Structure formats: structure tokens, C-alpha cells
Amino acid sequence: MNRTHIPGILAMAAIVVASNILVQFLFGQWLTWGAFTYPLAFLVTDVMNRVYGAGPARKVVIAGFIVGVICSLIGTQIMGEFGPLVTLRIAIGSGLAFLVAQLSDVAIFDRLRAGKWWRAPLASTLVGSSLDTAIFFTVAFSGALTFLEPANDVSWAAEALPLLGVGPIVPLWVSLGVADWLVKLALALVALVPFRMIVGAMTAKTT
């Protein structure tokens, strides 16, 4: 592995570990603190893709996936108030969402890399973030997928409530997913600034 890729791998690993820890702490009614750190994974992937190409970016994604699996395995062994901190459904949803979303991000970015500088990171992150949220919350909490882990009672997530407290009546997990998705979309726009700066700095070093 090229030594120049190590900072990207370490950054991705740090984000995954931090997000797995911070997801245990609530931020308001609909979010956890992990919602604000995890989207930075897309920034790391996009920077690696722009500077080094799709291949190295995929290596960073795989490294992040492996770290995520390790975090999930550790979480299944830590007992919280209502059982293990990480259930089988959460572990499956988290790993599947990360892998699909990040690899989709890499593919979309690579397809759009020849356009204006902001188009590839913005489009790839928006699509990747949407996939990530949809896959994770559906797998982890939807009543339709109870068969994945019958012993895990997620009936609390099906409680019918107004969407984000003000919209139509939906299951609680849908509000949680929408709130998470909105944060990702907002950070996708904000991340364009550090993306531009980091890419510029890294490119200058290699020229």
C-alpha cells in the first residue's frame, strides 16, 4: 500500500470509531452526536478520489468498513441498559449502509470528475448519504425486517408520531432517518469548503 494513502485510511478509521462512540449520545429528540461526525467519511473518500483516484479511495472505504465491523463486534459485547449496545440488525444495517453508500460515492465521483470541481463531490455525497440513511434505518428498525433478528424488540421504533414532530403520522424510525438525512445533506454542502482547501493543499504538495 502506498504510504501517501495512510493519512486517508487513518482519517476514515478515526471517523468510524468516533461515530460509533458518539452515536450512543443523544442530540435533541431525533439525532445523536454521531450524526455530525459520520458524514465526514464522505469528505475523506472524495478527497482521496480527487487526489489519488478511485482505486485508492476504494481501499480507504474497505479500511473503514473493516474498522466498522470491529467496532460492531466490540459493541455486541458491551451491555447497556436495554441489552447489547450493538444488535445484529444494527451491525448488519451499519456495515451494509457504509459499504453500499461509500462505494456508490466513489463510482459517482469518478464518473463526474471531469466536470466542475464541486459537481463530483456534491452529487456523489448526496446520493451516497441518501443510500446510507435509507439502508441503515430500514435494516435496523423497520418492522418488515423483524425476521433478521426475531429476539430483538424494535417495536419502540414503530411508534406512530408526527414526522419530526410536525408532519404526517409515520413510524418513529422514519423521523429518525429523515433527521439524519437532513444533517447529511447540510454537511454535504458545508464540506465543499474543506474539500476545496484540502485538495488544493494536497495537490500543491505533489506538484
Rank of each mutant, 00 (worst) to 15 (best):
Met1Ile: 10
Asn2Ser: 14
Thr4Leu: 14
His5Trp: 14
Ile6His: 06
Pro7Gly: 11
Pro7His: 13
Pro7Ile: 11
Met12Trp: 06
Ile21Asp: 04
Leu22Asn: 08
Phe25Tyr: 14
Gln29Pro: 14
Trp30Glu: 02
Trp33Leu: 09
Trp33Pro: 11
Leu40Lys: 13
Leu43Pro: 15
Leu43Thr: 11
Met48Asn: 12
Ala54His: 07
Pro56Gly: 08
Pro56Ile: 07
Ala57Met: 09
Ala63Asp: 12
Ala63Ser: 15
Ala63Gly: 15
Phe65Arg: 00
Ile66Leu: 15
Ser72Cys: 11
Gln77Trp: 13
Ile78Gln: 07
Met79Thr: 14
Phe82Cys: 03
Gly93Leu: 03
Gly93Val: 00
Ser94Met: 08
Ser94Gly: 05
Phe98Arg: 00
Phe98Ser: 02
Leu99His: 06
Leu99Val: 12
Leu99Ser: 04
Ala101Asp: 08
Gln102Asp: 05
Leu103Trp: 11
Asp105Lys: 06
Asp105Ile: 01
Val106Gln: 09
Val106Ala: 07
Arg113Leu: 09
Gly115Lys: 03
Trp118Cys: 02
Trp118Gln: 04
Arg119Ile: 14
Pro121Trp: 12
Ser124Trp: 10
Thr125Glu: 08
Thr125Cys: 11
Ser129Tyr: 01
Ser130His: 11
Thr133Gly: 00
Thr133Ala: 04
Ala134Val: 04
Ile135Thr: 06
Val139His: 13
Ala140Met: 05
Phe141Leu: 10
Ser142Gly: 07
Ser142Asp: 08
Gly143Trp: 13
Leu145Gly: 13
Leu148Glu: 10
Pro150Lys: 04
Asp153Met: 10
Val154Asp: 00
Val154Pro: 01
Trp156Thr: 14
Gly165Thr: 06
Gly165Gln: 05
Val166Tyr: 10
Val166Cys: 11
Pro171Gly: 09
Asp180Trp: 01
Trp181Met: 02
Trp181His: 06
Ala186Gln: 01
Ala186Val: 10
Ala188His: 06
Leu189Asp: 02
Val190His: 03
Pro194Ala: 08
Met197Asn: 05
Gly200Cys: 09
Ala201Met: 12
Met202His: 12
Met202Arg: 15
Thr203Asp: 13
Thr206Glu: 05
Thr206Ser: 07
